[in-house]
């Protein structure tokens, strides 16, 4: 009987401490976030998808971090992919892009969808730009998702496009993303 009691009390203590820890961290991870970009011109429309974007979010502070492997973008045509990695982004030199920011006025207790502004630094090709854009945050229980879109200007990131191809690539690129998070246990 004593042994049983000891076991039960130990188990309860373990459960309580686990619960306390998870409440303290409130961190979520998306290992396979979706990100797409679109370039619309009268000459050609270009679309690329990356389904392996990494993102971490601290729901108590509103801090969000995103890391994007540039070579994981998939294009309809492999020649486009080659141009993107070798000529425009120089993926050998700059394999990742990243974003670190804070969600403004995030309500961690809100159940359902809340639209908020996120402000932070986006780094592409080693060039840092501050971005501010709208995101939709949906949280029901432990299920958390964030989606939104942002506009990136080609000229801001030293992306050199040959004059011959410049009519085919838009000056402003639309980036959309959708991240499904799960609880992060580190």
């Amino acid at each position: 009987m004593n042994k049983k009691l000891l076991f039960l009390s130990s188990f309860l203590f373990l459960l309580i401490s686990m619960n306390c820890n998870s409440q303290k961290s409130n961190q979520y991870i998306a290992r396979q976030g979706e990100m797409s970009f679109f370039s619309y011109t009268s000459a050609e429309n270009i679309k690329a998808n990356n389904d392996q974007v990494l993102s971490l979010i601290d729901f108590s502070t509103g801090e969000i971090a995103v890391s994007i492997l540039m070579r994981a973008f998939k294009f309809e045509k492999s020649l486009m992919e080659e141009h993107f990695n070798e000529s425009y982004i120089e993926s050998d030199l700059f394999p990742k892009a990243s974003f670190e920011g804070v969600i403004q006025n995030l309500d961690p207790t809100h159940i359902g969808t809340q639209t908020r502004i996120v402000k932070g630094d986006f780094i592409l090709k080693g060039i840092k730009k501050t971005l501010e854009f709208k995101i939709d945050i949906n949280k029901i229980g432990d299920v958390l998702s964030v989606k939104g879109e942002v506009e990136i200007l080609v000229k801001d990131f030293n992306i050199k496009i040959p004059p011959l191809l410049s009519p085919n690539i838009a000056k402003s690129i639309q980036v959309t993303f959708n991240f499904d998070y799960s609880e992060y246990e580190n």
Binding site: Q52, L54, S67, L69, R71, A72, K74, P95, K96
Partner: peptide, 11 residues
């Protein structure tokens, strides 16, 4: 092999 973030990524 496409590279590494937290994980190794193969497409």
């Amino acid at each position: 092999l496409k590279g590494f973030l937290m994980d190794a990524i193969l497409l």
